[in-house]
Design a protein around this nucleic acid. Structure first.
Length: 566
RNA sequence: GACCUGGUAGCUCAGUUGGUAGAGCACCUCCCUUUUAAGGAGGUGGUCCUGGGUUCGAGCCCCAGCCCGGUCACCA
């Protein structure tokens, strides 16, 4: 392994700690008596009292016999003051001069016992009486500093490094941690909302024999013992509905779903959806519930119902406008497409500049019209309702218009945040819709749905009228935390693997050169270069390779540059 | 999948027609007892993403590739 000079110094410090009888990785429990946040928030209660804290040393300012350092625990950051004569028991001041000043580094995890006080400059601090090494850090952390004006210097900002080493990102970038704390606040808030109403949180299979409930390309895997293919779920909808058939009135699941499709700023191959199904409700009820839920979530996480998303101020205060999709298309394109046949609709698409082809049905074209011409206008939360039947195979036919369905999507900041239906519970209609999908897939749509016979069988036993919703949790977190990229709200976004470390073995060129050198033992550098017949670049690289492996050495003597074996 | 921009020290970044690889912070040595992004002085530190090529000479030019990011395509 190739170590940088900074890493070598730290490993030497590690050994020196051991030589002093200090275990750099002690096993004992370290009992703390407070958190940094507690102390800062309730300073008067702590002032003058003894506390025990543990955390990571994030900076250090050494001034002779006294020093200041910054300690960071899970709750916050605080200054500590360390005086040589107070933490050292011997005359040499070993604990201070050697351990603290020389052998500890930024990033080390330490425990301290000391007295809370405020410095002359007015900063809350702890005057350290005892210092304990809890874990030595062998790699240097990026040093991020914030000046008096709040300006950040040398931020650890390379996205590739931040995502690949999220742990470092979390250590040095406090705002990143905030995002993930908010993410948990959001899901906690939702659970509270549902649990208060008596809804049951459940778990359903991730490995499915038929990837149903949505139209998307699945990840495929294989079960060895059963010798059968299995798919990672693209949705859990059909399983949750089976539970409604089984007699639960309301079930919900926070589900990781997996879709084998392109990745971008708003798509990760695995993502989280909260799906909820409530019996005896319809999509109107679901709209009311959704706006109430989102207002609560926003208040719980941001203490206000308004948030900035990019340059837009968005209010989650209920209620939200409800706009039928055909109405939206009329508003934003000027065309009333209600009742149009496929030919007429294709004509409209061409007029507004949307590429169409023969495989596109009415549903697909309406979807395109909305997506291209309308979607981006809906910045404030808006329910878009009553989608055409063709694009909604799991949705109940509209109570007043058989061409439409009782479906809504919630648009926020021009993006889809949720999708909900009055669920189709007529098993005969459901079978017919699946067969329509099959026809579409034969027409060339490789994402049309598979037919799940057992799901239809369940419906045949009878499912109460039910409304269901799926809310994209990653997108919701992006909105609530004002992040434009899904990678900022996932701890570990999907990445291509890092390149492998260079091999420790000699490559072919190095082997050739090594063999030549073995024959002569020592030779003028230029002679060997000529003998090797390598290009300049290759020569340089190969010789450096040999010296790095400690097989050869270049020496500069009065007689010239020599290469010799070691 | 296509195109565009990037990849240089632990971090953030410079690097001139192609001519000895730089700065700040970090690190090391020394001075300093309540300091404030970063007190003073001196020093160490490099696979310039990888592999080929052109050239007397490549961080820079050419070719191929890898990885991040962006735009588009795809995305019930």
């Amino acid at each position: 392994m190739q170590l940088s000079p900074l890493e070598i110094i730290r490993r030497e410090s590690l050994q020196k700690l051991r030589d002093l009888g200090i275990n750099p990785y002690p096993a004992e429990e370290f009992k703390t008596t407070a958190t940094i946040k507690d102390i800062i928030n309730n300073f008067e209660d702590f002032d003058g009292k003894e506390v025990v804290l543990a955390g990571r040393m994030m900076s250090r300012r050494i001034m002779g016999k006294a020093s200041f350092a910054e300690l960071k625990d899970a709750s916050g950051r605080m200054q500590i003051y360390i005086n040589r004569d107070e933490i050292s028991s011997d005359d040499e001041g070993t604990m201070y001069n050697t351990v603290f000043k020389k052998l500890l580094d930024m990033g080390d995890i330490i425990g301290i016992k000391g007295e809370v006080f405020k410095t002359k400059v007015g900063e809350e601090s702890v005057n350290v009486k005892e210092l304990t090494v809890l874990s030595k850090s062998l790699r240097p952390l990026p040093v991020v500093k914030t000046d008096a004006d709040g300006k950040v210097h040398d931020a650890f900002s390379d996205n590739e490094q931040r995502y690949r080493r999220r742990y470092v990102d979390l250590i040095v970038n406090d705002h990143v941690k905030e995002t993930f704390i908010k993410r948990t606040k959001i899901t906690t808030s939702m659970r509270e909302f549902f649990n208060t109403r008596g809804y049951l949180e459940v778990e359903t299979p991730i490995l499915q024999p038929i990837p149903g409930g949505a139209a998307a390309r699945p990840f495929m895997t294989h079960h060895n013992a059963l010798d059968m293919p299995l798919y990672l779920r693209i949705a859990n909808e059909l399983y949750l509905k089976r539970l409604i058939v089984g007699g639960f009135d309301a079930v919900y699941e926070f589900a990781k779903d997996f879709r084998n499709e392109g990745m971008d700023r708003t798509h990760n191959p695995e993502f989280t959806v909260m799906e909820l199904y409530v019996a005896y409700k319809d999509y109107n009820w679901m709209m009311s519930m959704t706006e109430e839920l989102l207002e609560k979530i926003c208040l719980d996480t941001n203490n206000t119902s308004e948030v900035m998303i990019g340059n837009n101020k968005v209010s989650f205060k209920a209620p939200y406008p409800r706009v039928p999709i055909l109405e939206a298309i009329k508003i934003h394109t000027g065309f009333d497409v209600a009742g149009m046949n496929e030919v007429e609709l294709r004509d409209v698409c061409k007029k507004v500049g949307i590429d169409v082809d023969e495989t596109m049905g009415i549903g697909k074209m309406i979807d395109e019209l909305f997506g291209e011409k309308c979607e981006h206008h809906y910045i404030q939360p808006t329910f878009i309702t009553d989608y055409p039947k063709e694009m909604s195979p799991l949705t109940k036919e509209h109570r007043t218009n058989p061409a439409l369905t009782e479906r809504f999507e919630l648009m926020v900041n021009g993006k889809e945040l949720a999708n909900a239906y009055s669920e189709l519970n007529d098993p005969i209609d459901q079978r017919a819709r699946f067969e329509d999908q099959l026809a579409l897939s034969e027409k060339g749509d490789d994402e049309a749905m598979f037919i799940d016979q057992d799901f239809i069988r369940a419906l045949e036993y009878g499912m109460p009228p039910t409304s269901g919703i799926g809310i994209g949790i990653d997108r919701l977190v992006m909105f609530m935390t004002n992040n434009a990229s899904i990678q900022e709200v996932l701890f570990f976004p999907q990445m291509k693997p890092e390149k492998k470390a260079p091999s420790v073995e000699l490559n072919d060129d190095e082997k050739v050169l090594f063999e030549m050198l073995k024959k002569v033992n020592k030779i003028l550098l230029n002679d060997l270069k000529i003998q090797s017949e390598f290009s300049n670049k290759k020569w340089d690289k190969t010789l450096k390779g040999l010296t790095k492996h400690n097989l050869a050495k270049v020496s500069n003597t009065d007689d010239g540059l020599f290469v010799e074996l070691i």
